[in-house]
Design a protein around this nucleic acid. Structure first.
Lengths: 186, 186, 186, 186
DNA sequence: CATGAATGAGGCTTCATTCAT
DNA sequence: AATGAATGAAGCCTCATTCAT
């Protein structure tokens, strides 16, 4: 926040670390040794600790970015004209994005301020869609979060390639149909 | 296979270990120290290794048992009179069972011969329900497996107690409605 | 306390560890790597941790033994016939013992139940000597403890050999004379 | 020696570092991270290394200053009219100074050229006092050094506040009485 | 066979020191 | 000459696995 801008090299390294962490966590979950992340980033382990006070903090930073992105996207869509399309479009994006990110299961544990952030964004999206009659009314934002987690995790072990793509679409269809207001037209 | 039957006490120990492992894994995930499992079983760690070549093997055995149980249940239900009820009943049981098992995320990684077993059982259950018009026809057994994983994992971080119970029911309703044949009555 | 006796090998190892720790701490202070202690004991670091939950606990155990011994000695002497001799004899023993134990400075930090133990023992020794008129009356047990720490630490960097021996005697004489009751005959 | 005089700002920095180091070492012992010292001095760690080749050298410099001060004080007092008062006054100053300096235990390890300096100053002080009959004759300068170390270290774990002050006075009285010439009046 | 002690690789983290800016 | 980022060697500790009792 009030921190002054990092020196050029520090900034570069920080980004290398975050990028490496993203890949490593995605590939092997939270369990990857921090030294491996550092090696992947081409820095020493100490450098990681200059930027993040602990492995967990690094992980959260990586996840936080993703969640923040999601929340931003949700808010952006919520402003649009068609609340139903906004809602289901978001679902689609989520399913697409989550494919083959192996760190989502861990990512989902993250709490704190982000929880609030994503919650509010989804709440907005959901309420609009419900008010427009596009989504069933007996669902709450916490329900939606849990469902989305399930979706993310499902999508995880969907194969790459067109066959996986087709399968993801079917999964999405099932979830979307389940969420749609009973009696609403698809 | 060619194993000679275990002595009575060995058999008892093996079971104590499995039972302890089930609890410990469920309570704390794959991360629990093996010593803790051994202690919970009331045996030494060496004894665990007499029965299982590695921690991972023990974990797989535990998961295998659970999956076998599920498959058995699916098959049993598939034989019943009402395929739709069989199918959705199974979903309900699954959701109930999965609540608060911390080892599910890891469990789901386990594959092997079981894949086949559960696959066939679910395939049976699904086909019957589809033939009866209770479940949409564009879904395949692999889709179902993935969806169920998502359900299991969703249900994971549903709170204990009646509030959680209610939420689980809503989640189940969404999934069930999504799976129902378009135009079929709930 | 209520622990059942250790297995023979465990007991042996535990003692090797304690002995190694005593030497290593004495030689290099608290700073010695635990791995070095383990190596000196001829065991793996894990073995040290089987017997002591942390490096600090090991250190305290080593120190505790020494302090307990001292307190025992003080109590034993306090029962004797000549309180003055008991008191000054204890001082002499302490000075002799402390020569060249490099870990005393750290040892002295140790607190807890031992504090109480040594305090009471010294208090007894001191009071008796004071009542017999052998030690000045304006000194309290805490004062004595601090003085003895000073003595121990002084004696630390006294050379080995007869020259050191003579020096230690002079140091002891100064302290003893300072503690003696004013007007009492040496 | 052959060093060119430092630039004004460099000189200022060097002093800031030394001052910060003095405080930090006194507050936390030799263990304080060098970065902390640098931060306290308001400079980067690199700057510390511009002035001192290693952390240990910095520590020695700090200690050296203190010892030099002590030696100076001892010499100054040795020139005074009353050798006995000079001697015991020095003891008092030492005890006062040493209270609550956490780095004393480590400081005492430091040797080198200073040894000579402080030795000579104390020798002077002692000899004068002995010649005046104020201090017992069987004590040598090395004995005195060791005794003073003991005093310094004792005083270390004397509490802050007036109670500690009183205790320090008692400790000093014991040492002083022990050092006084047998038969001399206090 | 069971026990539980020992092993030791490897994880996270700190921090003296070096080096790019 | 100062800064502060990067390095990387240890340090402490855990825990899967092996092995003496």
């Amino acid at each position: 926040m009030g921190d002054r801008p990092l020196r050029a090299d520090a900034r570069r390294n920080r980004e290398k670390v975050v990028r490496a962490a993203r890949e490593a966590f995605a590939a092997s979950g939270y369990g990857v040794p921090l030294d491996e992340i550092a090696a992947l980033a081409g820095v020493g382990p100490g450098t990681v600790y200059r930027h993040f006070p602990s492995k967990e903090a690094l992980f959260e930073a990586v996840v936080a970015a993703r969640i923040r992105d999601l929340a931003d996207d949700a808010r952006r869509r919520a402003d649009g004209a068609d609340p139903g399309e906004a809602f289901f479009g978001f679902l689609g994006r989520l399913a697409g994005e989550a494919a083959a990110k192996r760190d989502m299961p861990d990512a989902i544990e993250v709490a704190g301020a982000l929880r609030q952030d994503i919650f509010e964004a989804l709440d907005l999206l959901l309420r609009h869609a419900q008010r427009a009659g596009a989504v069933r009314g007996d669902i709450t934002a916490p329900d939606l979060i849990v469902l989305l987690k399930g979706l993310i995790l499902s999508v995880q072990d969907t194969p790459q390639g067109p066959a996986g793509e087709a399968q993801r679409e079917r999964l999405l269809a099932v979830l979307a149909d389940g969420l749609r207001s009973p009696g609403a037209t698809g």
